[in-house]
Nucleic acid binder design. Sequence first.
DNA 1: ATAGTATTTAGATAAACATCTAAATACTTT
DNA 2: AAAGTATTTAGATGTTTATCTAAATACTAT
Lengths: 95, 95
Amino acid sequence: MNEVFKALADPTRRQILDLLKNRDMTAGEISDHFQMTKPTISHHLNTLKKTELIQDEKRGQYVIYSINTTVFQDVMNWFFGVMQSNPNHKGENEK
Amino acid sequence: MNEVFKALADPTRRQILDLLKNRDMTAGEISDHFQMTKPTISHHLNTLKKTELIQDEKRGQYVIYSINTTVFQDVMNWFFGVMQSNPNHKGENEK
DNA sequence: ATAGTATTTAGATAAACATCTAAATACTTT
DNA sequence: AAAGTATTTAGATGTTTATCTAAATACTAT
């Protein structure tokens, strides 16, 4: 879970997720959306993959990446948990 | 927004948010829940404060911290965005 | 005003991380 | 099998970040 949050902390990786939400893409296609080198993007893809935020599938000489929304559920649940009921915020704080 | 994600990437900071979801606390009370030194916790509190995930209020010699759920909304919205409709995932991917 | 408590600031250090270049691996096509 | 394309691995480098100790600031109570 900590790894997921750490993976989400990088703007490039979040952009990759934004790309993959529209359609599955090969590593090269993803790379083309950034100025960084392919090895750098490959590293980011690997980071995302380790957390299972994305998954990959080899198709010939290409590697196709796709988003895996199941992990997002867990993160969302944490957010819901935090947003639930801080007693001090029911009614505004006393002066 | 990037700063918010970076702030959430640290487990200690997420624990602080978990604490504050139950009730507002002074810096010292928060500190008592961790083995780290007070300066370290103070630094984490500052990081959270800069992103407005928490806010503080001075009360005598104490500083009382509280959660600020408004920023969470923004983060949640990003998640909803990513989870929405990857066309490749409507029906399962072709073999 | 002095001593005590609460918190933060400053400065240092070590670990983690994003990025690069060069090289390796894997597949495809001629 | 040789050449070309796609992707990853390895190793190096600079930056960021979590943490510490020591010191400063701010308030309270004697």
